[in-house]
């Protein structure tokens, strides 16, 4: 997978595996389908979606991605920035 550099604009996949059966997902619902900006690559880790079921897990990149709360929430909101750890296979470069 191509490494996403700092500043890359990304879209979080609008996908809902938990509606299709047993799943363990670390991408919070509120950022799915939303646009963010990569802050940095945090490292590579075994995919928890497989670890949770004791399946062999590929190593996947993990990024810190920043979101503008105005694109996530209606009022009341008082955060200025949201930083979320998101695995690379959930991100598409814009």
């Amino acid at each position: 997978m191509t490494r996403l550099g700092p500043g890359t604009r990304v879209i979080v996949r609008d996908d809902w595996p938990e509606t299709r059966g047993e799943a363990h997902i670390r991408t919070p619902h509120y950022v799915r389908g939303r646009e963010g900006v990569v802050v940095r690559h945090l490292g590579n880790f075994p995919n928890p979606e497989d670890l949770a079921f004791a399946r062999p897990a590929a190593t996947v990149p993990l990024y810190h991605v920043r979101f503008d709360p105005n694109t996530l929430w209606p009022p009341p909101r008082s955060a200025d920035v949201l930083l979320v750890e998101i695995f690379g296979h959930w991100l598409e470069a814009r």
Binding site: E18, A23, I25, P28, H29, Y30, R34, W73, P74
Partner: peptide
């Protein structure tokens, strides 16, 4: 930005509590 309200998303899992 979509007009949906993420705090009331029916597709989220119940432990996925951000902004609910």
């Amino acid at each position: 930005m979509s007009g949906s309200e993420p705090g009331q998303n029916p597709k989220r899992a119940h432990h996925d509590l951000g902004g609910v």
